[in-house]
Amino acid sequence: MGEICLTDEFILETHGLTKEFAGFFAVRDVNLKVKRGTIHALIGPNGAGKTTCFNLLTKFLKPSAGTILYKGQDITALAPADVARLGLVRSFQISAVFPHLTALENVRVALQRQHGASFDFWRSKSVLDQYNHRAEELLEDVGLSEFTKTPAVEMPYGRKRALEIATTLALDPEMMLLDEPMAGMGHEDIDKIAALIKRISAKYTILMVEHNLSVVSNLSDIITVLTRGKVLAEGSYADLTKDERVKEAYLGAGHG
């Protein structure tokens, strides 16, 4: 029904999203609305349900209750690969690259999916060379030109995250879900990846889970705070810093 995208202010919405694991509610009755073209951050203390929420949105987990609307279309019942095909692509907390493929090949795997021929077992893989140019462009875009021929496993951690983003961009998604893009990174890498995210946000809607609050404050247009599986507060960083409940959740419980 929902091909009225231009008027749709919200690209992704959840209604009463709930995930129960044997009596424990990891995510409870979450109503999330992500505005098109924004960077939306999901924060909260450990165990607040952020990653579970991500897994629900990308269908890696099945919700116990609630619905998920993407561009007005109900995607609650779709398979994860189908969600990706609609342009809602996720990253993972642990850097998700194909370790023994080169950076170029990593990106090419993504390009190849959209253009078909992925089942052709009788053709030489040299037919994939047609994607090399586009793959090189994407790598250059995230500052990885020098790593084109390097197997992903040999790249520094921060560069792997950049490669992951390049691979995601290769799908030309409408919306990216980044699960802790800064996890395990040093200062220098954080600045680079933050600048990269800021830059790509001009074209894509981004929902990210992130622990690093300075990154969140610099990048995010809007922030949703989760605690114990529920939405505690939502607003801009400035609003939230004034919110007593948020302070308590972080200083009281999380960072005691």
Binding site: A84, V89, F92, A96, F98, L101, E105, Q112, D120, T167
Partner: peptide, 21 residues
């Protein structure tokens, strides 16, 4: 082959291959 490339990608990291569609 192009198929072999996808197969290797799946062997290396199946969740990621799924997330690429």
């Amino acid at each position: 082959s192009p198929f072999g490339e996808v197969l290797k990608a799946i062997r290396e990291n199946e969740p990621r291959a799924i997330s690429l569609g």
